[in-house]
Nucleic acid binder design. Structure first.
Lengths: 331, 331
DNA sequence: GAAAAAATTGTAATCGTTTCCACAAAAACA
DNA sequence: TGTTTTTGTGGAAACGATTACAATTTTTTC
């Protein structure tokens, strides 16, 4: 139904080869043929069929992006960053949702393989990575984002979690805080949760500050666990002066708890937390936030992936760590 | 490099036709050949090449989704809803970003045309719609979401804005509020802004409540305008008791203003606003929110589009309006 | 003005599938 | 047993582009 290259060729009285050359800006074409062909193209409203082209040239100029959740701020900002650079380089991202499930992640990889994407950016849902081998064995480059399974294996774009946590903690210490609470993630299985804990602890050690075991709680980086855990700290005589929260969603949960219970709260608690996103400012509570350059993470991941796709020579693996930044709210 | 259907055929000692039949679950195939072929497929780690398949069958099982902004809550919830039903039906969404720009929206449509998507879901960035004709003339079905250019022309999934605004206003009236402020959008050019205003005004009229001209302000549905406009209402003796805000982002702006200036505020103002998203609860201010079934909008759009793709007989155009729901926060 | 070089165009194979058509073998029927 | 029907399989032509190679025309060079 839609016009094909053949229709254009016939109308213009040339071969499809010539039309193809015009489309692809081949230099060796006579100016007047080029012009004639272009006119017919616009007359017929012809657009190139990318699926045919992709089949022939064996590249699709598409890149898969697997995220644990569409519709979550952090992931979509990464996606936005990636989209910006991919688009500029003529690539189309295909955003997929793993729903924080290993099997879905695997299924999406399979899908992207079928779709012949030229590369994949993955924000891993779990700490498993065997299924990435499917990509390797098909020679599809991929880049991990935000967390990593095994640092020696795959390209990754991360944030300097250790340093970010250290700086924030150090800042708090210098401001005179001594009694710390800590709300972390799964330090067993999640690289970023672990690193943030390390940075936090190292700062306390360097400044010889005691860390009480019962002021140390581990959740799962979800809002609910922040909401539930923060409560257990408060309203007793051993409450911390400041709580270090190592993830944004747990921070949101904690904030919600504090807002809901502000009338019964004995004393204010200061919050320090990873990430600086929408909520961090609007909730009205004073806090120290460790801002990740989220969009930049996505952009860097896209850049790295494109280098791989283009076959540029880079040692394996590339681990890029971006710097965090401290932000103050409502103080 | 990757195994093709030919490799499988050769290994299994059958023709590519047979392999294809196995892949596509053709009924007329001998059980033992099927089994043999399946074994080879798994041995060779074969995956079908969808770009070749798409070329042949002239369908890609992909659907474009054009949104004015990736990384904005509302749009991504729509996307999430759409993704859920598309995925279940074997379709892959390609999410594109128009950046709230007409030209980019046009460019994305052109891209999706080249990619041969089977249909497109569009959250329009502007009130222009001529470029949608490119889709029509290529026989690609499309569905508009959230706002509409001309109701008589294209399929659309919307929300019953008039009724939603009316109900909320009526509720406020019944609660005794009489002095209303209104923060709206561009009622000239944006269908949803207009409809919400109509519902609001109609309720006031029905209850014979005066609407003062200088308590009526129009912004642009962005945070900044909410922030700036709310201030002009307050701190004078003619301040409204309640402000009806017809968009979430303006609401967020207003909330930020109120939080920042809470110390200098003479009297509290109650907010009523369209949408009920992340901020609505956490900001701590009491408010009445008009919740749209955002994910459901995306799901319905996907369902409608799939009906069109499948060629089901439905009168043109289909305009589906979903109901809103009132939600109370911090009261 | 002829030979060589450069520029322009066409022919046809190819990418990896699907599917129409033909056909052989097996099953059902008489 | 011979005929018809059913079942399973293969051959080969598409789908719409790109591109190596060849062929032709034009330009340059001496």
């Amino acid at each position: 139904m839609a016009a094909t290259i053949k229709d254009v060729a016939k109308q213009a009285g040339v071969s499809t080869a010539t039309v193809s050359r015009v489309i692809n800006n081949d230099k060796h074409i006579a100016p007047d043929t080029r012009e004639r062909v272009l006119r017919i193209i616009s007359d017929l409203n012809y657009t190139v069929n990318n699926v045919a082209r992709s089949l022939k040239i064996n590249r699709t100029h598409t890149v898969g992006l697997i995220t644990p959740a569409i519709a979550e701020d952090f992931f979509m900002q990464v996606a936005q960053g990636a989209e910006t650079v991919l688009r500029k380089e003529g690539y189309t991202p295909i955003i997929c949702n793993s729903n924080e499930e290993l099997e879905e992640e695997t299924a999406r990889i399979r899908l992207l393989l079928e779709q012949q994407t030229d590369g994949v950016i993955i924000i891993p849902a779990t700490n498993r990575g065997e299924h990435f081998d499917m990509l390797t064995s098909n020679h599809i480059p991929y880049v991990l984002v935000d967390r990593v399974v095994d640092e020696t294996k795959a390209d990754a774009v991360l944030v300097d979690n250790i340093n970010g946590a250290y700086e924030a903690t150090e800042y708090l210490i210098n401001r005179g805080y001594r009694r710390f609470g800590f709300l972390g993630g799964d330090i067993e299985h999640q690289s970023n949760a672990r690193e943030r804990f390390v940075g936090f602890k190292r700062a306390l050690e360097d400044y010889k500050i005691e860390l009480e075991e019962d002021l140390l709680k581990y959740g799962d980086f979800h809002e609910r666990s922040g909401y539930e855990l923060i409560g257990s700290f408060l309203n007793n005589d051993r409450a911390p002066e400041v709580v270090f929260i190592s993830n944004y969603y747990m921070y949101v949960g904690a904030v919600k708890y504090l807002i809901r219970n502000k009338d019964t709260m004995k004393q204010p608690v200061y919050l320090a937390s990873f990430d600086d996103m929408a909520f961090s400012e609007v909730n009205g509570l004073p806090s120290l936030n460790i801002a990740q350059p989220i969009q930049e993470i996505g952009m860097e991941a896209a850049r790295l992936l494109l280098s791989r796709i283009r076959g540029e020579e880079l040692p394996y693996p590339q681990i890029r760590r971006l710097k965090t930044r401290l932000v103050h709210h409502n103080t």
